[in-house]
């Protein structure tokens, strides 16, 4: 099956800065894909290159098998981009904005266009604001219109560049419900976000960029499994300082043990019982993407250093 997005040896320089360094990966159709990295990592440059806003110096970019340079019309029709900046045209209402955007993609006046626009407006809770001028909308509402604009030509691939930056909880939930629905219906979603818990809960696969280089590419599950250790935190008044497994005292009877596999827990508990310890409280902490992210970024710093 044709990849939704194909990135082959994409390289881009801005003066002396290497913004993208031979980036290469595919995103399969229907995937919910996360693109993570600190500020200046190259995420927006990569997205902009896919959208034709930035021209890469070498390499190749395809959206649904269409080259973004030589077959740019077809490639752009396959792609809906929600830009990071909160931009809008102050001359028009929400409905006019969406109709214009549909028109740019060759979708003329029709009942199908209008009913799809109505559907998008409803799903993003924008219906009451449909005839309001863009200038009068709050930041959150403008963000919703940006999402609506990206969807108006029904693109199979949707790129969201920090869509929930500065957005309230209610909008986040509305937005993610709608995006999940689109993903279930077969749309490929590419997400960049600084909220790592969002990426962790939603993305099937994640690429991490740093200073233009790709430093990780794997399923979210594998990244969590391989890159961070789980911890067992328990409270007992037995002295566990001589225990195998290197427990760390935390005060007030709390101890922390690190482990990789759940199978390591039972022998540990058996040791505690054998030492006469009685467990008053116990909790297991799973690694989260934030830990994985920080660890990978630090490892990369050591490699670079």
């Amino acid at each position: 099956m044709t990849a939704a997005v194909r990135i082959v040896q994409a390289t881009k320089r801005f003066g002396a800065t290497l913004a993208l360094d031979r980036i290469e990966f595919d995103i399969a159709q229907g995937e919910f894909f996360g693109l993570l990295g600190p500020n200046g990592a190259g995420k927006t440059t990569l997205i902009s290159a896919l959208a034709g806003l930035v021209k890469i110096d070498s390499g190749r970019l395809e959206v649904m098998g269409c080259d973004v340079r030589s077959d740019y019309r077809a490639a752009r029709r396959q792609l809906g981009v929600v830009p990071q900046e909160l931009v809008f045209d102050p001359f028009f209402t929400v409905r006019e904005t969406l109709r214009m955007q549909a028109g740019y993609f060759g979708i003329g006046r029709s009942a199908a266009r209008d009913s799809w626009i109505d559907e998008i407006l409803e799903h993003l809770d924008l219906t009451p604001k449909a005839e309001a001028n863009m200038r009068t909308l709050s930041g959150g509402m403008k963000r919703r219109v940006l999402v609506a604009q990206a969807l108006v030509h029904r693109p199979p691939v949707i790129v969201l560049d920090e869509p929930t930056a500065g957005v309230d909880v209610e909008l986040r939930q509305t937005l993610w419900q709608f995006i999940h629905r689109l993903n279930r219906e077969g749309h490929t979603i590419v997400l960049t976000t600084h909220y790592l818990e969002e990426a962790e809960s939603m993305c099937d696969r994640i690429a991490m960029l740093k200073a233009g280089c790709m430093v990780a590419l794997d399923t979210t599950r594998n990244l969590l499994d391989r890159s961070a250790r789980r911890t067992l935190r328990l409270r007992t008044f037995a002295d566990l300082s001589e225990m195998p497994g290197g427990g760390q005292p935390q005060g007030d009877g709390w101890w922390i043990f690190s482990f990789e596999q759940f199978a390591e827990i039972e022998p540990l508990l058996a040791c505690i019982r054998a030492a006469g310890g009685e467990i008053a409280e116990l909790e297991i902490n799973q690694p989260d993407l934030e830990q994985v992210f920080i660890r990978i970024m630090r490892e990369q710093e050591q490699v670079d250093g």
Partner: peptide
């Protein structure tokens, strides 16, 4: 105006030659 406010991006993202 479109460049300063950034909304020219909507035209540039579209399949317009």
């Amino acid at each position: 105006q479109s460049r300063v406010t950034g909304n020219l991006v909507f035209v540039l993202l579209a399949p317009i030659s």
